[in-house]
């Protein structure tokens, strides 16, 4: 079980809805940073992912290591939240 999960999103991004829905269906809680509401945190998302895109999901494990998943990428997201 990860320590926490943060998702960077925007209002219009369909893949963000998909990540949230997928985590929700697994009963996982997450913090959402909506960049339309918090444009000041855009640089943070960019620095974490290296990409000008959302969703960016940051999974922090119990040992504080972080995994960054760009887009709705189940091949990466599923193992990251399972560990």
């Amino acid at each position: 079980m990860p320590k926490n999960i943060t998702i960077f999103t925007t209002n219009t991004c369909a893949y963000c809805v998909q990540v949230k829905k997928w985590l929700g269906a697994k009963g996982m809680t997450y913090e959402e940073v909506n960049l339309d509401q918090h444009p000041e945190r855009q640089a943070e998302a960019l620095e974490i992912s290296g990409a000008y895109t959302v969703p960016v999901t940051v999974v922090t494990q119990q040992d504080d290591s972080k995994e960054v998943i760009v887009g709705f990428n189940l091949a990466k997201l599923a193992p990251a939240v399972a560990s």
Binding site: T10, T12, C13, Y15, P39, Y52, T53, V54
Partner: peptide, 17 residues
């Protein structure tokens, strides 16, 4: 790709405020 070249405005447009 995704670092300045995009194919989805609703996904990535917000980075170009």
């Amino acid at each position: 790709y995704a670092r300045g070249v995009h194919y989805c405005a609703t996904c990535d447009g917000a980075f170009y405020r």
